[in-house]
């Protein structure tokens, strides 16, 4: 049996919102250590890797490993019915064909229960474990979201170049071109505003703007995003959870 209680429904809402426009359904793999998901979008360009560690939950138990096939659109509709501040418990028997979703209002004496029909999802898993990284950028997630949105107005591609002391985001299209350069910055009073850039090799990569638009839907999950780049490899965009992460692996574009 699986039972996981979130302190606030808002966390699961944000996770599902960040995933549902990229993949319509995916398997949630539940073990005694927590819940993980790997899912790839239909075009096989963007991969989502989610880890919700046991410590994220107020209460968690999973007696036997369970795989829950979940339609994210339907899941989103049901969890949208709870208030952000509600306790949210997910519950499934070992051979369940439904997932129980329970909201508890912390002020009123009110409990709401829903059941989500589970799906049988046959998806292959990709081997993504070992990756070298040539450059790592950590910046405020809201800043990264704004850069992606602004550059998308110009082109369907965003070029990221990283040198020793700066990262440059640029786009060029029919109406013109634009660029944003960021440099490392330490803000002691507001550490969430700090920017770090570490580099082993200079980077020059281009990514599809429409996939970046999907990635930045995770912005509300974390004040920071970490971008790991390696020449001619997928970029990794990581949003940390209180205990765990939501990562996106995005295949780069190639120049002709």
């Amino acid at each position: 049996m699986l039972e996981g209680k979130f302190e606030e429904a808002s966390l699961l809402k944000k996770i599902v919102e960040a995933m549902k426009d990229c993949v319509s359904s995916c398997n949630f793999n539940c073990t005694e250590n927590g819940i993980s998901v790997q899912a790839v979008d239909n075009s096989r360009v963007l991969l989502i890797s989610l880890l919700i560690e046991k410590d994220t939950f107020e209460e968690y138990r999973c007696d036997r490993n369970i795989t829950l096939g979940i339609g994210l659109g339907s899941f989103s509709k049901i969890i949208g019915n709870g208030a952000n501040s509600d306790y949210l418990t997910i519950q499934a028997e070992d051979d369940a064909d439904t997932l129980g979703i329970i909201f508890e209002d912390k002020v009123k004496d009110k409990i709401s229960e829903y059941n989500l029909k589970l799906l049988d999802i046959d998806a292959d898993l990709l081997e993504v474990d070992a990756m070298e990284t040539d450059a790592t950028i950590t910046l405020p997630s809201a800043d990264f979201a704004k850069i992606c949105k602004d550059m998308k107005t110009l082109s369907e591609s965003l070029q990221i170049t990283v040198t020793k002391d700066s990262a440059k985001f640029q786009s060029a299209g029919e109406i013109g071109s634009g660029s944003v350069v960021i440099k490392p910055k330490t803000d002691i009073d507001h550490p969430e505003e700090s920017i770090t850039i570490s580099l082993d090799k200079p980077i020059d990569l281009s990514f599809g703007s429409k996939y970046l638009s999907d990635i930045i839907k995770a912005t509300s999950l974390s004040q920071k995003v970490t971008i790991k780049l390696t020449e001619d490899s997928p970029g990794v965009f990581e949003y940390k959870l209180p205990s765990g992460y939501l990562r996106f692996y995005l295949a780069p574009k190639f120049d002709e």
Binding site: R44, E127, P234
Partner: peptide
């Protein structure tokens, strides 16, 4: 011109 690569080029299926 530029084209979009697939993740399949980089990751093998488990």
């Amino acid at each position: 011109m530029s084209g979009q690569q697939s993740l399949n080029r980089f990751f093998s299926v488990k």
